[in-house]
């Protein structure tokens, strides 16, 4: 299995989004067994629409706009990475 390490192991939010992300991805991936660290793009589990759909998923879940500088595929490669990205975005800005 191809895996990617968590992009941001020190997350700012205590909310765990992994189950929500998995539920969303299962809508597309079905019964295929994949771990939180699996690179869903590299494994070919999703179609070319997925990057866009994942951004919309994050935007809707957090009621935020994902800005151009965050539109990096690496933020969306695995459940763990999306979770880290969402925790980072959900946390209030620090001074």
């Amino acid at each position: 299995m191809n895996t990617v390490t968590n992009a941001n192991p020190i997350s700012n939010s205590s909310v765990d989004y992994r189950q929500d992300i998995r539920s969303f991805l299962e809508h597309f991936i079905g019964e295929e067994d994949f771990s939180d660290d699996d690179d869903i793009f590299e494994l070919g589990l999703v179609s070319s629409l997925m990057a866009m759909q994942l951004v919309l998923f994050v935007e809707k879940a957090l009621s935020i706009r994902v800005e151009s500088e965050d539109l990096n595929l690496d933020n969306f490669r695995s459940i763990a990475r999306i979770d880290a990205f969402m925790r980072d975005k959900a946390a209030p800005a620090h001074d």
Binding site: S48, L49, A51, M52, V55, S68, E69, L71, N72, L73
Partner: peptide, 17 residues
């Protein structure tokens, strides 16, 4: 427009949608 590397996967994909 958009990040380097996202030209097809995000910029084109979003516009084509």
């Amino acid at each position: 427009i958009g990040r380097k590397g996202a030209g097809i996967s995000y910029v084109a994909a979003g516009a084509l949608d």
